[in-house]
């Protein structure tokens, strides 16, 4: 395989002005973004940012209260779309009285024509689980393995994972992540992973969707988003932000003693004596999470492409 797995012109997920309520609270307010097909996309944001709501909407398990959302070119939950999407919810709902083998048989029965028993069994083996074990007797991490096996066995085009790895031990987590990446490499599966563990996403995800307070803060290729930001460190003893920064977009600026640390989006050369580096993914995300008021940034590939007439709710 020598081609890139992502297919820049095809769209896995796109939203325009998407709104949703969760427990009488506005969970998503006017979310606009696009995720191209074949990407491994990190969905990042603080607790209550709307990550789980967004995934449940894309899975067709919840309804929006406004705006538009398209999944693999169709409406979420549409009979033509649903078979091509797999969703692993945060609480991994499974039938506790089923054995693992029975759970996979259910997967086969519910996904006629798509089910891949070998893939599902490989994941169960990866988790070092016996097919005869009852789901109810498994630990949280072991249930996660079964839920991922069920999702992979469906051979989805779009895989939606809500905090999938948080309760796995390091070895199993590595195995699951590796299986996920191999699947993405082989079948160009689009994967959207909601996660809090920023270091886990580095190296795995090539696309990023950062949401906070129900809005999209950053969306685009990880590499591109990183390359338009700079971490600037230097000596600064005045109040406020340095005048040299006026030409640039300042995401966040902090002063500790005499040292100023700023995350900026330069609009040209940065004047002054500063140590200037490219931020890591973690630094980029932390900077934006600490500065909810910073201007949002959508990379060109993250701009929705649905026909304008359909933008209206």
């Amino acid at each position: 395989m020598n081609e890139l797995t992502f297919l820049p012109d095809r769209t896995a997920l796109e939203a325009v002005g998407l709104r949703a309520r969760h427990r009488r609270r506005e969970a998503l307010r006017a979310c606009t973004f696009r995720v191209p097909a074949g990407r491994v996309c990190a969905l990042v944001g603080p607790n209550g940012a709307g990550k789980s709501t967004l995934l449940a909407l894309a899975a067709g398990l919840r309804r929006s209260s406004g705006g538009r959302l398209r999944v693999l070119g169709g409406a979420p939950g549409d009979p033509a779309v649903r078979p091509r999407v797999a969703y692993v919810a945060q609480d991994k709902p499974l039938y506790p009285h089923f054995t693992i083998a029975e759970t996979l048989r259910m997967g086969a029965a519910l996904n006629p024509g798509r089910w891949d028993q070998a893939v599902a069994e490989r994941l169960v083996r990866q988790g070092d689980l016996s097919p005869h074990a009852r789901v109810g007797s498994l630990s949280g991490g072991q249930r996660t393995c079964v839920a991922l096996a069920l999702a992979f066995g469906k051979r989805p085009e779009l895989l939606l994972l809500d905090e999938p790895m948080s309760d796995l031990d390091p070895l199993v987590r590595h195995g699951m992540m590796a299986a996920l990446m191999a699947e993405a490499a082989e079948r160009a599966t689009t994967v959207v992973i909601a996660s809090h563990i920023l270091s886990e996403l580095e190296g795995v995800c090539d696309y990023l969707l950062l949401i906070a307070d129900g809005r999209v803060r950053l969306a685009g290729e990880v590499e591109d988003l990183i390359s338009v930001h700079r971490l600037v460190v230097g000596r600064y003893e005045d109040v406020g932000t340095p005048r040299e920064f006026a030409a640039h977009t300042i995401v966040e600026a902090r002063t500790t003693g005499r040292q100023l640390t700023a995350l900026i989006r330069p609009e040209g050369p940065i004047s002054g004596t500063w140590e200037i580096t490219e931020p890591s993914l973690e630094e980029l995300l932390l900077g934006h999470l600490r500065a909810p008021g910073a201007p949002a940034l959508l990379a060109p590939s993250a701009e929705p492409r649905m026909p304008a007439s359909r933008w209206a709710a």
């Binding site: 395989m1 797995t5 992502f6 491994v40 993405a184 490499a185 795995v204 090539d206």
Partner: peptide, 21 residues
């Protein structure tokens, strides 16, 4: 090694391997 072999061992993004190649 193919991109699939590399990612199955290292759990990194396959596009990264292809970019290196």
């Amino acid at each position: 090694p193919t991109a699939k072999e590399v990612v199955a061992a290292t759990a990194i993004n396959p596009n990264t391997v292809l970019k290196a190649y």
